[in-house]
Amino acid sequence: MPLYDSEAVVLRTVDFKEADKIVTFLTPGHGRLSGLARGAKRLRSRFGASLEVLTHGRLVYFDRQGKNLIGINHFDVLRSFQGIREDLMQSASCQYLAELAMRFVPEREAAPECFALLLGALGQMEAVKDPEALLRIYEIQFLGLLGYAPRLDACVQCGRKAAAYGFSSKQGGLVCGSCGSALKDVASVSRGVIHFWRKASDLAVNRIGRIGLDGRLNGELKQILHRYLLYLLGREIRSFTFLERLRKEFGSLRAAR
């Protein structure tokens, strides 16, 4: 059976049987790949700590014909992002990015840009003070890579430019006042949000951690993006809910101090 190798980032691990794990990776050449790591839970497993979520490494695997799961031969760590694991907010933020990749990137379809974006975001997460701006830029660019970039220069329905717009998840973009009045899912959207969205869409991956975002704008953008992602996915994004809860809880803890 031939062995293949690929760069990969671990997105998720699930315990399987007594000592095995089912590991899901994001790879540039084959998108999402899931595989069985035999004995990975054992203390002296050959995988050691390499199969921890968010680890970037070189995956060597064999593909069994007719089987969904690849067989994981070994996984050599290239970068473990240890700093992220030691900060609760950063760790939860990156797990949110991993969940987006898990839910949206198709299995066994090349996704080199999605891979580069995730790796770029993980690499810059350790250095950012507040991960919120990075998360918003990631969401914007990720949607673009998947082909869901909304139309931001004119009304998506009538094609006319307007003084003010709303955002419709169902229509996938901005809608003017008259088109929006007939729709049910229109959220108001400020000029600042539209401007930031356009700017963030064109940002190089190695710069996504360097942009700041003020709290009010972040709140507005977060709501619109989250509603759009939920509409596209058709289910809850669990790590987003978790992240919001953490933010609220530790925000009030800090305020109490």
Binding site: T241, F242, R245
Partner: peptide, 10 residues
């Protein structure tokens, strides 16, 4: 243990 992706919160 806390697991964002499995919706296991505090």
């Amino acid at each position: 243990a806390l697991s964002p992706i499995d919706a296991i919160g505090p």
